[in-house]
Design a protein around this nucleic acid. Structure first.
Lengths: 296, 296
DNA sequence: CTTCATGATACCTTTTATGCATCAAAAACT
DNA sequence: AGTTTTTGATGCATAAAAGGTATCATGAAG
């Protein structure tokens, strides 16, 4: 015979009552049934849990230890059952969200905050990553939703624009262009650029390079940093200039000058992307949430 | 029907194997029995835990939640059973130990350290208190062992001397006696004394006052502090002098001068005291431990 | 000295769990 | 293409566990 949750539940009620008959009534069973269940429990444990006499029933030291542990077990079981049910109806769960520097600097924080208000049981697990790595993680089912630099067209996946940014040029204080109020792209033809590695930042380059080519030059990238904070850092110590978005510039600590670029009309888009089929419930909730944003 | 630990154990094995037949062999039951148990579990939870087909068995999101919670429950149950058994044979448990300033300043730390080495499963719960309050707590079964200022003779309790201290006089730097290398009690006849409250420190007074009376004076107590640290503090700011033990003087931070008292031959004893009957197992272990100290 | 309340035991019934035989469907093999 | 094997599910009979009723022994209260 093995110890089951039934034994523990009966035991805990008896601990409260310290009287077999009253405890058995509370449990809606007969008194002999309770007596035998406690006997079986003690036999299986090889431990006396109660001192009994006709006058009193009281816990032994070992009984107290079993009471404390038993309560934890029963509470843990109830919590587990509750959580499992909530997960099964999508009221609880985890959502793995990928994001780029561009997304986290602008729309994403507010978006996640509102999603959390609507679905407080769903834990958002943020995964930082560039567009290419997020797309791979989506295909590998390591990620539920990606926030990536668009436009992306991935077979089996759907996407939706959540953010548009007009790129700006960022130069260090004291730079020859720092006193200008705005520029055109051609002004940057002979500048040194600071940016991210070509493989990781491929999607941003796909957006930026054609614009420069149209303006008649190929940007000369002389320094690479692994994220936008690093890029801004290198710019501020005079290693070169860069083109990023205004929201990212807002994170800079100083020593930098933002310059609007008059002849860029194309915006840079950040898209949410997710699998078109077999969505997990938290993902489905997030997609519904994104779609409701349009209606409001 | 209710969920029992059996359901969870079977479920967890199936989670490991993800194959009903193999899991049933591992459990030493037939495959239909396992299928039924999992069906009952899912019916009771009203949750699908596994996606099944003839080709594969895999967990749902809810199944993963139940797996994590179920593991905690089963581990908690096993730990509880183990702890309960250990408590019942006295291998684990709690020992409520009372101690005075005199005890904790000298013998007790080493004693408790060695006891813990011998019985690592027993947690010592220290309760600071003066002799009188410890005796009350022993009678009320709030304490298993007291370390008190002796001699005490309490009906139904046994005691054993664990520490003897020769009292010394402690005066502040710059005091008229501070340059002496030792004194006799009569030197203190006209001094102001700092000590603890009469009710709480009754046992110490019972030891000290007769000595002073024999030396021909009644100590004049002008300041009271609640513990020995407070007494030493008041002495060091010149409020008076005191008589305590050398081990307590060792805790002083400075500004004090210790003076041996040549004409005190009676030592001050600290005793361990415990009930003579119906000892809890940890208490019995401690008493046995104290008795083994003599043999070594 | 009786009455009452307690926890334990004996005996029987109901409920639950299990094993065996078997099925339908898909995969693996010939 | 056809056969064999493997998978999880189901029907039915059996074993084991849990429960109920009646009753006992013991100590407390009246």
């Amino acid at each position: 015979m093995k110890i089951g949750l039934r034994h523990i539940r009966y035991f805990l009620v008896l601990v409260e009552e310290l009287n077999f008959r009253r405890a058995s009534e509370h449990l809606h069973i007969s008194q002999p049934a309770l007596t035998r269940t406690i006997q079986h429990l003690e036999a299986e444990l090889q431990v006396t849990l109660f001192e009994r006499s006709q006058n009193f029933v009281r816990l032994t030291d070992a009984g107290r230890a079993f009471r404390d542990g038993g309560r934890r077990v029963v509470n843990g079981m109830e919590a587990t059952i509750d959580l499992t049910r909530r997960v099964s109806i999508g009221e609880a769960g985890a959502l793995r969200v990928g994001y780029t520097d561009f997304a986290i600097a602008d729309a994403l924080p507010e978006l996640l905050k509102r999603f959390h208000q609507k679905h407080p049981g769903i834990t958002v697990r943020p995964h930082h990553g560039v567009t290419t790595s997020q797309l791979q993680e989506l295909r590998d089912d390591k990620l539920d939703i990606g926030f990536v630099t668009g436009p992306v067209r991935q077979p089996g996946f759907q996407s939706r624009v959540v953010q548009t940014d007009r790129p700006i040029c960022i130069v260090p204080e004291g730079h020859r262009l720092a006193s200008r109020t705005s520029i055109v792209l051609a002004d940057l033809a002979d500048e040194d650029f600071v940016h991210g590695p070509a493989d990781a930042w491929a999607h941003f380059y796909d957006y930026l390079f054609p614009l420069c080519r149209r303006a008649g030059f190929q940007p000369r990238i002389v320094q690479e940093a692994f994220n936008s904070v690093g890029i801004l850092g290198l710019v501020s110590c005079g290693m070169g200039i860069t083109i990023l978005t205004e929201s990212i510039y807002d994170f800079a600590t100083g020593g930098l000058v933002p310059l609007p670029i008059r002849d860029i009309s194309d915006v840079m888009v950040t898209e949410a992307i997710w699998a078109s089929e077999n969505l997990r419930l938290p993902t489905q909730h997030f997609v519904d949430f994104l779609e409701q944003l349009d209606k409001k």
